[in-house]
Write a protein that binds this DNA or RNA. Structure first.
Lengths: 142, 142
DNA sequence: ATTTCATATTAGATATATTCCAGTTTTATG
DNA sequence: CATAAAACTGGAATATATCTAATATGAAAT
């Protein structure tokens, strides 16, 4: 079950006010185990309580990403996907349908600082590409 | 120097006809060492020889990616970037300006098949996020 | 509890990125 | 060189995301 206090605290921890709209986005991402697009999140939170606009949903997602509470996954030619940063995990993106799936975490070597140059490393992300279980059997059909 | 024959051959190898427009896109990506957007590529190839439309540029990029000759890098909220798959490398994306930079290659562990499930793995991509050298010193300013 | 103000929200307009369409042209093949 | 499949075209359409400026609200301080 979702702990309202925990959500409130993590928003505050990220320097964000707890507004009904922002709370709704965060709560939705925490209980929904998928990788919804901004449009899907907008729809879902308004289904429960129709008080959020599209702009606000985008604003809140941006703020949550900046605060490090949510991860954004860009997918070529499609809407970005979001998920709450709970347990560490990698991502698998299907080249056919664009769906994003989680993969169990495993450690990734960090690049040597000479590889990285003077760049500031914030995080690293491992993305596997291929065909998901739904698309793989139908590989021949185009 | 660019070898016209080599480009022709790699297009053919990918099952693609060699048209002036497609050749121009591939040649540009091979000699330009950056990560241009579709719009930039469109502009650049038409500067040399104004015979390509926007739609064709997009179509060709799609085909080249499908043929495995070009890599597409999605960046949140911005246009996708492209580069010719020459030497293997990883990518660094700047969280502030969205620029994509190359990082020297190093091996990445493949996930165990139990981690991958029944998914078909095509490739894996390591993306480092942070601040590029241009943006890092100005980190305080927003 | 009330005041205060920085922050957040809103609807709609706008900007940006990409794909679709339907008719025409071109490439590679035999 | 005739042919057919593939590629090209400009413009319209769609999808995605951001901006704007007026209004409302959360939470810190009284």
């Amino acid at each position: 079950m979702l702990d309202a206090g925990a959500i409130k605290r993590s928003l505050k921890g990220g320097g964000l006010r707890c507004t009904p709209q922002r709370y709704a986005v965060m709560a939705f991402l925490m209980e929904y185990h998928g990788h919804p697009t901004a449009a899907e999140i907008y729809k879902a939170v308004n289904l429960v309580d129709p008080r959020s606009s599209r702009a606000t949903t985008y604003n809140n997602l941006r703020d949550l990403v900046r605060a490090g509470l949510v991860r954004e996954v860009a997918v070529e030619g499609r809407a970005a996907r979001f998920d709450a940063k709970g347990i560490r995990h990698h991502h698998f993106i299907c080249d056919r349908c664009g769906n994003v799936e989680d993969l169990a975490w495993f450690d990734v070597p960090r690049p040597a600082s000479r590889t990285l140059g003077k760049r500031v490393l914030r995080e690293c992300e491992l993305i596997f590409r291929g065909l998901c279980t739904k698309c793989a059997p139908r590989r021949a059909s185009r």
